[in-house]
Design a protein around this nucleic acid. Structure first.
Length: 215
DNA sequence: CTCCCGATAT
DNA sequence: ATATCAGGAG
């Protein structure tokens, strides 16, 4: 365990250099907008979400506006993010629930967040970390892949991965650390063709050693 | 486990 | 032309 923490610390130290400022890529001005943007980001790139949210928020800035919106209008705006039927329903349901149960404010606990339509653990942790400044480990597909390649976890279950990372990362670095791992996965340790040649973690990566051993 | 869907890399 | 990417709900 102690050795694992030291390895994780070494990994983080490299990533802090290669990714100095691990901020959310999702454009937003307040917790509500981040919540909606993150709901839209399910199975969709942040780049694409950022193409639709300015249009969406110009017309529907707050929960009141989205709760009352004509679903077709919302759907047309968010169409390109995919899964637009679900996402439209979720946005409206989510806005309504915020109005009815949370005084139009985005709640700041994982339990309350996860109770909102379209909000799972990943989305909840994004909001907790980036809107409320809590230490929250976001596990998305990138974090899952990178954490497994680095052998920081052996699990495919996001909840278990989150627990494993919580063990090995200092709490002060939960949000930034997970986000750096995420970004490293998006741009370097990619799903299809990982750029091992330009990876700052090259010598710390078990996946790389396995490849060499296989030769 | 299946369904929900568009965009892009190959 | 099509495989792959990217979370949540039922």
């Amino acid at each position: 365990m102690k050795a694992e923490r030291a390895r994780a610390a070494a990994i983080l130290q490299r990533l802090e250099k290669s990714i100095p400022d691990p901020e959310t890529a999702l454009a937003h001005n307040n917790p509500f907008q981040l919540l909606i943007a993150t709901i839209l980001s399910a199975q969709c790139t942040d780049v694409r979400v950022n193409q639709v949210t300015p249009v969406l928020f110009a017309q529907f800035p707050g929960p009141e506006d989205i709760a009352q919106a004509n679903p077709e209008d919302l759907r047309d705006i968010i169409h390109s993010t995919g899964f637009y039927q679900n996402k439209t329903k979720n946005m409206i349901g989510c806005a309504k629930k915020l109005l009815e149960d949370y005084g139009s404010k985005v709640p700041d606990t994982i339990e309350a967040l996860v109770s909102l339509p379209g909000v799972g653990r990943k989305t909840a942790n994004v909001v907790l970390g980036s809107a409320f400044g809590q230490e929250a480990i976001v596990v998305d597909t990138h974090v899952r892949r990178v954490a497994n390649r680095l052998k920081l976890t052996r699990s495919d279950d996001p909840v278990k991965i989150e627990a494993d990372l919580a063990q090995v990362l200092p709490k002060k670095k939960w949000t930034s650390g997970a986000h750096r791992i995420l970004l490293h996965g998006r741009y370097v340790c990619k799903a299809r063709r990982p750029l091992c040649g330009e990876c700052v973690l090259y010598d710390l990566c078990p996946a790389e050693k396995e490849k060499k051993a296989a030769k």
